[in-house]
Design a binder for these strands. Structure first.
Lengths: 112, 112
DNA sequence: TAATGATATAACTATATGGTTATCGATCCG
DNA sequence: CGGATCGATAACCATATAGTTATATCATTA
């Protein structure tokens, strides 16, 4: 696969509004699938597959903590496509809404 | 359409290796369709539609000169998606190959 | 061990995408 | 005007994508 195909694949991973929102959210805080589901109007498997796509593009990494899998933004990789994270709208309000609804996971388990 | 959809549309325009090559080429020199066709293994209508996609995303502008339509890179717009043009491989060699084959248009008509 | 909860995967559907060939429109030139 | 060239559009086809529901996998906990 030549460089253009590699780059195109990366852009494909970013070429979806839901995945861009995921990136914007992970820029604020590591999240697990169950936190993201109520934010988007889509099913858990749909969120999971979006995350797989981001993972395959190297844009996120995962860490299992107990029964949850937390996803982190790979900012260095994101920079490869030089999407300035600052260019994304701030979604703090959405997270705050989740928190006010008690939907944020309070994970006390240490990273394995 | 919210900001995320707008951004996603822009990334979609960049999420194709042929279009990335077109961007890389336009970064070197304005081109018309007939110059690009022999560079890619695809038909003239296919190149034309790729260009439409880039045009719709605001990434290129067109200028008719006689029977040719020259396309220019909108670098400011490209910066919106902050793809550093420098991140793209240099395709000068391809253009030189075209030139050596006499396939570059020598347009003497002034911009209308 | 059994039940529960979080993710991932499978199978399916509808739409989007990227290619083709055929054809239309516009411009230039004899 | 008539022919030739460049580009755009139309119609079609194959594949990719993003969603769904159902189910499997893995970890926690009673």
């Amino acid at each position: 696969m030549d460089r253009f195909e590699e780059l195109a694949d990366g852009f494909k991973a970013l070429a979806d509004p839901t995945r861009l929102k995921i990136v914007a959210l992970l820029n604020i805080r590591d999240c697990c699938i169950c936190e993201l589901v109520p934010l988007f109007g889509i099913s858990q498997p749909a969120v999971s597959r979006h995350m797989s796509r981001l993972k395959q593009a190297g844009l996120v990494t995962e860490t299992r903590r107990g029964q949850w899998v937390f996803y982190s933004l790979n900012r260095a990789r994101l920079a490869d496509f030089t999407l300035g994270v600052g260019a994304l709208p701030d979604l703090s309000a959405d997270l705050q809404k989740l928190e006010s609804q008690g939907l944020l996971v309070q994970c006390t388990i240490k990273t394995s």
